[in-house]
């Protein structure tokens, strides 16, 4: 749970962690039923054959926002940059 919360970038309190563990455990247990479904008739391709293809955009310019509009909601900004706490790996 701590690993997944970390991947999700969500801090959890100990209580929340325990609660989610049991709640999600139940949901996942319920979802185990999928293991019993016979899916052999579904082709093993990652592309859904029902989807249309090649809906593409021509390479022509559209209006961009101004820097002022872009930064309108920035929690912090300076010199037209979004400012945030120091980036770490």
């Amino acid at each position: 749970m701590a690993y997944v919360a970390g991947l999700s970038r969500i801090d959890l309190s100990k209580e929340e962690e325990a609660l989610f563990q049991s709640q999600l455990g139940k949901v996942l247990e319920y979802a185990q039923e999928l293991q019993k479904v016979d899916v052999s008739s579904v082709p093993d391709t990652p592309i859904d054959p029902n989807l249309p293809t090649n809906v593409l955009r021509e390479d022509s310019l559209r209006d961009s926002l101004t820097a002022r509009e872009a930064l309108l909601n920035a929690p912090k900004q300076a010199n037209n940059l979004f400012i945030m706490p120091k980036i770490v790996e």
């Binding site: 022509s60 310019l61 961009s64 926002l65 872009a70 010199n79 037209n80 940059l81």
Partner: peptide
């Protein structure tokens, strides 16, 4: 233009002006 939007694909440019 950019890969998934119509903003200009250009090296440089005033900061945060080729955005949407």
């Amino acid at each position: 233009t950019k890969m998934f939007c119509g903003c200009k694909n250009e090296y440089g440019g005033e900061q945060n002006t080729h955005v949407c």
